[in-house]
Amino acid sequence: MSTVIALDRIAKVYGHGETAVHALRGVSLAVERGEYVAIMGTSGSGKSTLMHILGLLDQPSSGSYRLDGVDVAGLDEGAQSLVRSRRIGFVFQAFNLIPRTTAAANVELPLSYAKVSRTERRQRVAAALAQVGLSDRAGHKPNQLSGGQQQRVAVARALVTAPSLLLADEPTGNLDSRSTADILDLFDRLHGSGRTIILITHEDEVAERAGRVIRLRDGDVVSDTARTALEGKR
């Protein structure tokens, strides 16, 4: 197995001097290809900050971050946006589809930023929508879709570039239990097909699906347990 993510003493400090807030206090961890990791923690534990740094949406104050062996923390903005479009797929709690734009166009967006040819895009959009079971909703706009369907479109959008890493930030936070189950089943299937998934959650039942659970508290990793160990505890 190759290492997808290697974090070395990542720290993030907001503000200066006495008012400084240490969101992350030197987190080091490695995620191998094909792993399904859940990051848990109460609010303020630094899990969102970690997620943003993993997704190159935010810069760490110190430490090194290697994605697929490339040091990405030091890249300039243009290069980072390229990395985002090619190697990372995002799923947000609030779905974050572009309004007034069809499901297919939403899914196509990262491909067009990644400069994929038009014919290839069409095939990949169709494939991604089929993978989340929404081929028949390609022409629908976000406001014509249910929350669960919107989140599945968002997952399709995250998958369509075949990224090294799928980052999901509380993907089921805004969903009812049935849609939650749909999305989690979808993640299970993706995990089964070898995708690397990192999801943030504070719900145990969501974390239970993951193969590895990392708990954060006050910016530090307090536990990092593989599933076999979790099962063993029960």
Binding site: E77, G78, S81, L82, S85, F92, N96, L109, P110, Y113
Partner: peptide, 16 residues
């Protein structure tokens, strides 16, 4: 602003 954020998260470069 939020839409811009989404686009950037999906890899939109500044120029776009």
């Amino acid at each position: 602003t939020r839409e811009i954020g989404i686009r950037k998260a999906l890899g939109a470069p500044r120029r776009a």
